[in-house]
Design a protein around this nucleic acid. Structure first.
Ligand SMILES: [Zn+2]
Ligand SMILES: [Zn+2]
Ligand SMILES: [Zn+2]
Ligand SMILES: [Zn+2]
Lengths: 142, 142
DNA sequence: CTTGAAGCTACACCCGCTGTAGGTCCCATA
DNA sequence: TATGGGACCTACAGCGGGTGTAGCTTCAAG
């Protein structure tokens, strides 16, 4: 039986984050010691490691909840799991496209600024007027 | 003199967002009509357009505050402006690198799953064990 | 003058944590 | 067995960057 501190350290999580996951129902309520402190078995360690790894791969807590639920029914088809992963992939691809456009615009405006004074700064000119941009770059960061 | 609704519509902003920008001091306190409603001049329209465009290019509100302050002193050197933009570019590049690594892992795990049952799903295997990954992918999305 | 859209304030909520305050528990050492 | 200091507990506030709601008041067209 592990304390929350050991569990956290072994999975690269902060103690508060573990408690937060319990609070939102992503981790089950932990058993408690006589004095009321949380105690964890290896199953919880594995679950937390799964959550952290999925987070590192960019899955939302909602998606992770789905994945955890699915992995509790090992006899079911894994089509839903694959769908969650594909959804995640297309989110990542969408963000990549946006960021590539941003990078292009930023590089261009930095490259074009040969001014000394703020009054003539190309960067500020571009920021003042989207017509100066080559790409769309839709909404602010999601 | 424009109402907040017109100002918002012309800059592609939500009315609440305009009020929020005022609240955090990014937009100046607006003049008011006799009945207490906000009224805006063209200068504010330009300022808001600048803010929104910079947001679309991924600048944080803090960076935008800096840029707005700098553009109020047109005689100064634009070196600081350029530095803000370069910082933004390197943040974008860092995110791109992370997302490219994520994309690689996601593509690989999706491509490797030829199972039918959840019990044998390659995606879940990879999520359970980072050793299955080829790349690091450090911290969850910042 | 009426009416309905648009504005007002104040507040709660989203995600995914992180930090703090003020108290309690655990366990190695003396 | 007593003690000290780390680790733990709960409860709550706050981050960024907004969004949504409730319950009012104001504006402008007809
Ligand atoms: Zn410049
Ligand atoms: Zn643009
Ligand atoms: Zn599968
Ligand atoms: Zn991994």
């Amino acid at each position: 039986m592990l304390s929350i501190g050991v569990l956290a350290k072994r999975t690269g999580t902060k103690v508060q984050t573990v408690r937060y996951y319990e609070q939102i129902g992503l981790m089950p309520e932990a058993e408690r010691s006589a004095g009321g402190q949380r105690r964890y078995a290896t199953a919880q360690l594995d679950r937390l490691a799964f959550i952290r790894h999925a987070r590192q791969l960019g899955f939302s807590l909602e998606a992770i909840r789905e994945l955890l639920d699915l992995s509790d029914s090992p006899e079911r088809s894994c089509a839903e799991v694959d769908a969650v992963a594909r959804r995640q992939l297309s989110e990542v691809e969408a963000r990549l496209a946006r960021l590539e456009a941003l990078r292009g615009e930023l590089q261009r405006m930095i490259g074009e600024c040969h001014a000394d004074r703020v009054a003539d700064c190309r960067i500020l000119e571009v920021l003042r007027d989207h017509e100066e941009c080559l790409s769309d770059h839709g909404a602010p960061q999601p």
